[in-house]
Computed example of a mutant assay.
Amino acid sequence: MLSKFKKQMWVAALCGAAGLAQAQAWPSKTITIVVPFPPGGTTDVLARAVSTKLSANLGQTVIVDNKPGAGATLGAAQVAKANADGYTLLMGAVHHTIATSVYKGLTYSFDKDFAPITTVALVPNVLVVNAKSPYNSVKDLVAAGKTTPDKLAYGSNGNGTAQHMIGTQFQIVSGAQVLHVPYKGSAPLTTDLLGGQVDMSFDTVTPVLPFIKEGKLKPLAVTTAKRSSALPNVPTLQEAGVPGIAIGTWFGLLAPAATPKDVVQKLNTEIVKIINTPDFKKQMLDIGAEPIGNKPDEMAKQIKEETEKFAGLVKAGKVTLD
């Protein structure tokens, strides 16, 4: 018979082996990246760029599931409640740090119910108008917004998104009055912008860049502190006469909070490896995105800082949604 000590050692060894086998078994089935916007927008483009390479690296299918609505909070709520096993991920964005202060009825906590994996990229936002628009500069828009209040309308990706907050701050700083028209994502917004249903948008560079190159949209200013490498000749809002606005849109992957740390770390390692490849970097730069690839704790710090920053802007703009 085994002594009590030997039995304990034997059980511990078995448990350790079982745990190791479980860790090595991941991933053993399809991984889903939930995108909280419709297909065609920057969030979707980045998720699909990552999913294709991640699938090849892990030897498992990685699919993208679009769940748009409520300023990106519907998709986030779905992932927050999903099994914390590493098979359901969220392509989150700066929008979620804003939603924390805007939506009073959220069923999840963005800082407590998610485990950050890595920030994939930062994409500048750009103020664009239809090519046929009579407005050729930021000063033209500001003047129109002051002389004919509520005549102008800007579209956003939804209430509580970065575009909404940029529009809010633009009005506070410039004194122009512009009607906010929320959409479910970049694709329907851009369609209406091209069709003349809205006058302007503060969308990310990625979905509007092709139309800028085709001469269908006019870029008037970028909303980041520095000019965009994709639009080097377009001034910042600061340079265009509207100071104090320095907002870009970051996108990153997160898992449900209780996801095993070894799985989160493996995801971080594999995704950062993808982000640092020359072809992925080129793919990002071609769509106006700046590749990042940070550590989980660095992304967590970023989320905390952004949440605090936008809480102040939401209060100043008196933006509240149920």
Results as ranks from 00 to 15, higher is better:
Asn233Met: 03
Lys112Val: 00
Ile212Ser: 01
Ala144Ser: 15
Phe280Asp: 00
Thr32Trp: 02
Gly75Val: 09
Ala25Pro: 04
Thr118Gln: 09
Thr73Ile: 09
Gln60Leu: 03
Val208Trp: 00
Pro182Ser: 12
Lys304Arg: 09
Ser174Gln: 12
Phe114Asp: 05
Val142Gly: 09
Ala257Phe: 04
Phe114His: 02
Phe110Ser: 03
Val181Arg: 15
Val263Cys: 03
Val319Glu: 13
Val205Ile: 15
Lys112Ala: 10
Asn157Tyr: 08
Pro232Thr: 09
Val50Ser: 04
Ala84Asn: 00
Val208Tyr: 00
Ile98Lys: 07
Lys301His: 09
Val11Ile: 15
Asn125His: 08
Ser28Gln: 13
Leu54Cys: 03
Gly105Ala: 14
Ala76Cys: 08
Val263Leu: 06
Lys67Tyr: 04
Val234Lys: 08
Ser3Gly: 15
Trp10Leu: 15
Ser51Asn: 13
Lys315Phe: 13
Ala221Gly: 12
Leu267Lys: 04
Leu321Asp: 02
Lys282Arg: 15
Lys304Glu: 15
Ser133Leu: 05
Thr259Arg: 02
Ser109Ala: 10
Ala225Gln: 12
Val94Met: 04
Met165Val: 11
Glu306Met: 10
Val242Asn: 05
Ser201Val: 00
Ala115Leu: 11
Ala49Tyr: 06
Gln60Asp: 00
Ile212Asp: 02
Ala221Leu: 08
Pro124Arg: 10
Asp286Cys: 06
Lys218Thr: 11
Ala13Arg: 13
Leu194Lys: 05
Pro243Tyr: 05
Pro232Asp: 09
Tyr135Gly: 10
Asn66Ala: 11
Phe5Val: 13
Ser174Arg: 03
Leu58Ile: 13
Pro27Ser: 10
Leu74Tyr: 10
Lys104Gly: 12
Ile287Asp: 01
Ser109His: 10
Leu267Gln: 05
Ala47Tyr: 08
Lys184Asp: 06
Gly69Phe: 08
Lys81His: 07
Leu253Asp: 03
Ser51Phe: 07
Lys218Asp: 06
Pro291Val: 02
Pro296Cys: 07
Gly215His: 11
Ala240Arg: 04
Leu253Ser: 01
Val319Asn: 11
Pro243Ile: 08
Thr191Met: 04
Gln169Lys: 10
Ile245Met: 14
Ser137Trp: 10
Val45Glu: 07
Ala230Met: 07
Ile292Gly: 01
Leu58Phe: 09
Thr206Ala: 14
Asp279Leu: 10
Ser55Ala: 10
Gly155Pro: 06
Asn294Ala: 05
Phe5Asn: 07
Thr100Leu: 02
Met299Asp: 05
Glu305Cys: 02
Pro235Trp: 04
Leu267His: 04
Pro260Leu: 08
Ile33Asp: 06
Asp297Ala: 04
Ala84Lys: 02
Ala21Glu: 10
Val45Phe: 08
Gln238Glu: 15
Ala255Trp: 01
Asp199Arg: 02
His180Ile: 00
Leu127Gln: 08
Lys104His: 11
Pro219Ser: 01
Lys261Glu: 12
Ala76Gln: 07
Tyr87Asn: 08
Pro296Glu: 11
Phe114Thr: 03
Met165Cys: 03
Asp85Ser: 01
Thr32Glu: 12
Pro291Ala: 05
Val11Glu: 14
Gly75Arg: 05
Val242Thr: 06
Trp250Pro: 01
Pro39Ser: 14
Lys104Val: 04
Glu270Thr: 15
Ile303Asn: 03
Ser51Cys: 02
Asn276His: 13
Phe170Ser: 03
Thr43Gly: 15
Glu214Pro: 00
Tyr103Gly: 02
Ile63Arg: 12
Gly293Arg: 02
Trp10Cys: 11
Glu270Pro: 01
Asp140Pro: 04
Arg227Ser: 02
Ala144Asp: 11
Ala47Ile: 05
Gln177Pro: 02
